[in-house]
Amino acid sequence: MSALATAPAAGIGPEHARPGLVRLTGVELRKMVDTRAGLWLLLTTAALTLAAIAIVGFAGEAADHRFRSMLEVAIAPASVLLPVIGILLVTSEWTQRTALVTFALVPQRGRVLVAKLAAGLVLAVAAFLLSLAIAAAAVAVIAPEGDGVWSLPVGLLLQDFLMMATGMAMGIGFGAALLASAPAIVLYFALPMAFGILGEFSFFEKIAEWVDSSRALAPMTSELLSGEQWARAITALALWMLLPLLIGAWRLRREELK
């Protein structure tokens, strides 16, 4: 209250500096957990990761209990759900109309999108570290027989992380391109499925290997990619991650707020 008296004459001080991207990223991370819906989605992801590991731990065979296999299992739930978190991170601003407040405080809408991507990346890192920890703990407890239980090529580790991070960015891209939760979530899952079905036809099979994201990205978590596999994965990512992000960035900047 006392500050109000001085406000009109305050002029430009350091406190008027533009909010930095680190600060905005922190705000976006906070938005992920400060609603009940967001918090539950994160807790569900963690719970599913534990459940998947427990199931494989009890039901699987020794070969499944190697660290490399367990990690593949551990990151599966997050690879599916992180994109949904990414979608909602953008679309909830539209459906709840909080974008009015967000863009009033940060008129450069592109900066908000970058902050959301950065927050998504931070969450992907956190989810990946958690998956690593859960998988490692499970392997330590089960202690399977055999050689190379703990062996894991660094390249595969990076591929696993790439899978999580790009999934998150895909979700944010879909969310920004469609700006509505339900269509974005449905299309995110339905479109690759549709491509999968199309891929069953011989005339489309060659194309599907390159543009069907589920097929092109499938080896990402199970084997070290060959040169051609990388080319396919990058092609699929350009189509399913980069293109939605570009469309999303363009829409976000010009879309009228309802």
Binding site: I12, H16, A17, R18, T35, R97, T98, L100, A104, L105
Partner: peptide
């Protein structure tokens, strides 16, 4: 408005009171 470096420090805006996340 968009050239204000930190607009929230100089301009207070209320455009729609119902534009808030109900779960927050």
């Amino acid at each position: 408005y968009r050239d204000l470096p930190n607009p929230g420090r100089r301009v207070g805006i209320l455009l729609d009171a119902s534009a808030q996340h109900p779960g927050r």
